[in-house]
C-alpha cells in the first residue's frame, strides 16, 4: 500500500506523469519494490505472510494476493490503528514548541531593531 492506489484509481497520476513529475506509475513502483523485497526477505530466511505469493516464470516477477483496498482507503482517511496517536503526537509537539518559535521571532525582531539603530 506504500505506493498508493491502483493506477486506474489514482487521481493525480495522469497529470503528474504528463509533466514528468512522476516517471513510474504506482503499480509499476509497487511491482519493482515487491520483486526486490521478496528476494531479499527470502535470502534472510524470512517468510512473506501472503499465501498467494508466487513467482511467475514468464514475467520473471512475483505475484501477490489481492490488496485490501478497503483497508487502504480506511487508513488514509484516518481509520488506521495509529492515525489518532500520530496526529496527537504532532499536535502536542507543535503546541509545546510554540515558545521556541516565539523566542526565535522575538530574537530576530531584536536583532533587526539593533541593526536599524546601528545603521
Amino acid at each position: 500500500m506504500m505506493f498508493g492506489p491502483h493506477d486506474t484509481d489514482s487521481p493525480n497520476s495522469a497529470e503528474m506523469m504528463h509533466w514528468k513529475i512522476k516517471l513510474k506509475s504506482n503499480d509499476e513502483l509497487r511491482r519493482r519494490f515487491i520483486d526486490m523485497t521478496v528476494e531479499q526477505a527470502h535470502s534472510w530466511g524470512l517468510t512473506i505472510p501472503d499465501s498467494q505469493l508466487k513467482f511467475n516464470e514468464k514475467t520473471r516477477s512475483w505475484e501477490t494476493g489481492e490488496i485490501d483496498w478497503d483497508e487502504f482507503k480506511r487508513v488514509i482517511n484516518g481509520g488506521g490503528p495509529c492515525n489518532h496517536e500520530r496526529m496527537e503526537a504532532r499536535r502536542n509537539a507543535h503546541e509545546n514548541g510554540q515558545w521556541v518559535r516565539d523566542a526565535v521571532r522575538t530574537f530576530e525582531e531584536k536583532q533587526r531593531i539593533k541593526k536599524t539603530a546601528a545603521a
Binding site: 500500500m1 506504500m2 487502504f72 487508513v75 488514509i76 484516518g78 488506521g80 490503528p81 495509529c82 492515525n83 500520530r86 496526529m87 504532532r90 499536535r91 507543535h94
Partner: peptide
C-alpha cells in the same frame, strides 16, 4: 494538523 494533507499511510501502523 487539520488532516487536509496526507502522509504515507504505512506510518499509521
Amino acid at each position: 494538523l487539520q488532516g487536509k494533507a496526507k502522509y504515507s499511510s504505512i506510518f499509521n501502523y
